[in-house]
Every structure is written in C-alpha cells, then in structure tokens.
C-alpha cells in the first residue's frame, strides 16, 4: 500500500473512531449532534453526555493506544527484537502491583492511578539501575533484566489475587486485562503522546540507523548512547502513562508497528505516527465495543482488542508480498 494512501486511511480511521465512540452509547446521540457539539458547544444534555461522560474515556482510550504503539515501536528499535513490546521492561508489572495494592487498600480511582504510576516508574528505575553500567548497555542484559523483573512482579500480583477478598478480585482482573473504566483525565497522556511522537519523528532517520545496527549507526555519525537513553526513557514514559490510564492492555504495543511494516512502511518518520494512529483507533474502537456490546455489563478492553486484532494480524502475516 502506498504511503500517502495509508496516511489518509489511518487519519480517517483515527478521527472516525473518536467520533463513532462519542456517538455510541446508552443515551442516543446522532453523528450530527456530536459534530455540532464539538464545533460549537452549547449547554444541554447532549453537551454534558459528550463532553463530560464520553469524551474523557474516548480520549483516554485513543491516547492509551497511541502511547502503547509508540512505546512498542521504540523498544523494537532499542532491543532490535521484533518481539519486544511495551511490557518487556517490567513497566506494566510494576504498574499492576501498584494498582492492585491500591485496590487492596481500598483506594479510589485516583489512588489506583497514582500507585500504578509509582509502580511503573519504580520498575523503570530498577531496570535502568541494574543494566546501565559504565556508560553503555548490553541490550540482551536489558531485555533479560526486564523479563526477570516482570516474572517477579507477576508472582507478587498472583499472590495478591489469591489473598484478596473475593469482592475485589473482579476489579483487579479487569485492571490486569486492560480496562479504561478507571481512566483519569487524559490531558497529560495526550501531552506526553504529542511531545514524544514529535521528538521520535524528528529523530526518525537516526532510529532507522539504530535499527540497522549500533556499530553502523556509530560509523555513520549517530550519537548512539544518548539516542539509546532517549529511546529507553521515551518508551518507558509512554508505557507508564498508558498503563496508568488503561491497565495492562496487551497486543497493540507489540503489533501496531508490525502491522504498519506489513502494509509497506518501514521508515520511522512515517512508521511511528502511523503506528500511533493505528494503535489509538484500535483501542478506541475496542473500548467502544467493550462498554456497549454487552451493556450494561462492561467487558475488559484488552480482551476485545485481542479478539479483533489477532485475526487481522494473522491475515496480514499470511498475505503474500
């Protein structure tokens, strides 16, 4: 697929998924009404439902997907491993532990978000501290440290699930599968998404070079160590922001960048924003289905993402070039 066509299609998908998510819900609102209240907000029930109930969650969903897609694409470059996803560094494990401890203590939504963020940042610091020595990184050690830390954290999470009172377990499982019901204000996430995407695109050619090999990048004049540090912290921050909003939503972070590559775009200047659009649209659509398909019962968005995303991805993989 040509690049301009892909840009147009994914931009439409991004905007369309947001509008659709604002339209669909228990209270009936038409597409025209949604567009009207976006363009010229006027007080009324429609305005309140769109702006106060639906918009925060929809925008959180989109930001979450964009951040995970960005983090996954960046880590695939940093670790030069096609299987890298935002969670390989243990960031989600830390966030999960924080969130579950907060739920166990009976903290509200804000408390859950806060401890999830603290857990995520904590594991970033631990992974960085254990692996960055003498001004350089061995990416295998970085990867292994992340995997080992994740295993430890997931054991703690299992322990909490076993010991927690029955009434709290369902909420915990929802968080672990990815759930946007607890999402706080998406403003910071959008800010982080916009800034990180812009920075990453500006470094796009350097990322192409880093993906081609550290020594090659160095020989062509890239400051490899500072770039790797920036990629690590950028990806870690994006992941922390995403899991704080929506829990450990899987699949998108691993697959968004691969899907864009399979559609024929490999330059990071184009790949990164396209992956952000794809990831954002996917989670927005999945979350819309999650809160309406079985209403009033809500489904965890992470499960729906995988249910829709896995067949799509398998189709892309099976296509002949």
């Amino acid at each position: 697929m040509s690049r301009p066509l892909l840009v147009i299609l994914l931009s439409i998908a991004g905007a369309g998924s947001i509008v659709l998510a604002l339209v669909v819900g228990t209270y009936p609102i038409s597409v025209l009404q949604v567009i009207e209240t976006i363009v010229a907000p006027a007080p009324g029930v429609v305005h309140d439902v769109v702006w106060q109930l639906r918009a925060p969650r929809v925008l959180a969903a989109f930001a979450c997907g964009g951040l995970l897609a960005l983090a996954g694409a960046l880590l695939q470059v940093l670790l030069r491993n096609a299987l890298a996803d935002p969670y390989v560094l243990g960031v989600s494990g830390g966030a999960a532990l924080g969130a579950l401890v907060a739920m166990l203590l009976g903290a509200g939504d804000t408390g859950v978000s806060f401890l999830a963020l603290a857990g995520a940042l904590g594991s970033i610091v631990v992974v960085f501290g254990l692996t960055f020595r003498g001004g350089d990184w061995n990416v295998y050690r970085l990867l292994l440290t992340g995997v080992v830390l994740s295993a430890g954290l997931s054991a703690c999470v299992s322990l909490i699930l076993v010991l927690a009172p029955q009434a709290q377990v369902k909420g915990m499982l929802f968080w672990l599968m990815g759930d946007l019901a607890y999402a706080g204000s998406p403003v910071y996430a959008w800010l982080i998404l916009a800034v990180l995407t812009a920075l990453a695109v500006a470094q796009g050619i350097r990322l192409d070079l880093l993906a081609a090999g550290e020594l090659k990048a160095l020989s062509l004049g890239v400051a490899v160590t500072p770039l790797k540090l920036a990629v690590f912290f950028g990806a870690a921050l994006a992941t922390a922001a995403a899991v704080t909003l929506g829990g450990a939503i899987g699949f998108v972070g691993l697959m968004a960048a691969h899907a864009v590559r399979l559609l024929g775009v490999s330059h990071h200047r184009a790949l990164l924003p396209l992956a952000v659009l794809l990831g954002g649209s996917l989670i927005t659509l999945a979350d819309t289905a999650a809160r309406t398909a079985w209403a009033p019962q809500q489904l965890p968005v992470g499960v729906l993402i995988a249910l829709v995303g896995v067949p799509a991805m398998l189709w892309l993989l099976g296509r002949r070039n």
């Binding site: 030069r80 081609a212 090659k216 490999s266």
Partner: peptide, 10 residues
C-alpha cells in the same frame, strides 16, 4: 563492517 547485526526492513 564485516558483520551487520540485524535485518533491515526497507
């Protein structure tokens, strides 16, 4: 370089 570390996607 004598060896390249990775595959290139483009």
């Amino acid at each position: 370089l004598q060896q390249e570390e990775t595959e290139f996607w483009g």
